[in-house]
């Protein structure tokens, strides 16, 4: 049983997003020292499966952050 999923389950959608953002934010600077707030917001502003995947699979963080930065710069 994943503790984060368990924690999120009873929360409102808005609260779930907030929690996911809080978890993601400190991880972003490791792959992209700039645009941390934007990347976090971008990953958070999707279906919950996206930020959950990044949190549960750290190796996907870099690629997701790269996608976010690319999209932001277009």
């Amino acid at each position: 049983q994943d503790p984060l999923t368990t924690t999120l389950a009873p929360a409102s959608p808005q609260e779930q997003k907030q929690m996911l953002g809080e978890q993601l934010f400190p991880l972003i600077p490791a792959v992209h020292p700039t645009l941390t707030g934007k990347i976090t917001g971008m990953l958070t502003d999707t279906d919950n499966s996206e930020p959950l995947c990044v949190l549960e699979t750290p190796v996907s963080l870099a690629s997701k952050a790269d996608e976010a930065v690319t999209a932001l710069q277009e």
């Binding site: 997003k17 809080e22 934010f25 400190p26 707030g37 976090t40 971008m42 958070t44």
Partner: peptide, 22 residues
């Protein structure tokens, strides 16, 4: 062009502004 306001920027401890219509 269109102004770039998306995505909303996330700040820890600050209520996030995204998806306000949910």
């Amino acid at each position: 062009g269109s102004s770039i306001s998306w995505p909303p920027e996330f700040h820890p401890g600050v209520p996030w502004k995204g998806l306000q219509n949910i």
